[in-house]
């Protein structure tokens, strides 16, 4: 029996590589194409963007989307103000606590959102914090819940960003030049974490926009997640178009992260010369 030559072996390996790449692409792309194709069939025997038109002319779409955008904005601001100083202080003064804080930051992956939302409602529906009784109160509660949900993403992004700069030396350099903690935070730490903060912010945005559980139980159909679910239950073609819109939005956020990260990588390469 003839043994295959090295050239034939290499050829077979290349073919297998392409086979698996193709299989992977088909696995991810076929459902998307199918969904997109289905979303274009709102009229019989005609390909049309009618489902998209209905979505974009639906007032509820814009109302829920803008509400979720606002909630995401506040969640991002609170997350940054909470996570950046905490992660910075842990890196600077309490490095031994880092594994513990990392563990805590991962808890939202372990504790289901349904448990979190019932816990929030139970604690904040009675004294001393009656937050569930007013619209403003429920909005605050929703933002707080989103901050918890986004914690793994924001903490990890910020901590990675802090790892890329020499936090201790930069802090000491600023101190030796007369800077206080406020100046150090807002003129040194925040600007140098710009990319990390943006990464965390976009991930938070992507999470919050489609979030269903917290939104349903705290604010009901005011948010975009429950709106998407409602459409999915009642309007066949519009739900597919909404899935495609949501998908494109998420990818747009991911694309923005890539663009900012590329800028940083080029800067570092230049520094390495």
């Amino acid at each position: 029996m003839n043994t295959p030559t090295p050239r034939a072996k290499r050829h077979a390996q290349t073919l297998w590589s392409w086979f698996w790449i193709l299989a992977g692409v088909l696995y991810f792309v076929v459902p998307l194409i199918a969904t997109f194709d289905f979303s274009l069939r709102a009229k019989k025997d005609v390909l049309t963007f009618l489902a998209y038109e209905r979505i974009f002319t639906d007032a509820a779409f814009w109302r829920t989307f803008s509400f979720s955008l606002q909630m995401a904005f506040f969640a991002i601001v609170v997350s940054i103000l909470l996570v950046v100083p905490t992660a910075y202080w842990i890196r600077l003064k309490l490095p031994r606590l880092r594994p513990m804080v990392e563990f805590v930051s991962m808890l939202p992956f372990v504790v289901p959102a349904i448990v979190l939302v019932f816990g929030l409602i139970r604690v904040f529906s009675g004294p001393p914090f009656r937050l569930t009784n007013t619209f403003a109160g429920t909005n605050v509660l929703l933002v707080a819940g989103y901050v918890v949900l986004a914690l793994p993403y924001t903490y990890r992004a910020v901590d990675t960003g802090l790892g890329a700069i020499d936090v201790r030396t930069l802090t000491e350099a600023a101190q030796s030049l007369g800077a206080g903690w406020g100046t150090i935070m807002f003129k040194i730490i925040f600007p140098n974490l710009r990319v990390a903060i943006l990464s965390g912010a976009f991930l938070t945005l992507a999470t919050v926009i489609g979030e269903y559980t917290l939104a349903t139980f705290i604010v009901g159909n005011k948010a975009f997640g429950p709106y998407m679910s409602l459409i999915g239950q009642n309007r066949t073609y519009e739900s597919s178009s909404l899935a495609i819109i949501s998908f494109l939005l998420t990818w747009a956020f991911m694309g923005l992260i890539q663009i900012f990260n590329r800028g940083r990588a080029e800067g570092h390469l230049a520094g390495a010369r």
């Binding site: 020499d166 930069l170 600023a174 101190q175 030796s176 030049l177 003129k187």
Partner: peptide, 20 residues
């Protein structure tokens, strides 16, 4: 006295220039 009130200049091994 806190370090930021001493008016003492410091140069570090790792340069410590502010990257931004």
């Amino acid at each position: 006295q806190p370090s930021n009130q001493r008016n003492v200049g410091m140069v570090f091994q790792a340069y410590a220039l502010f990257p931004n």
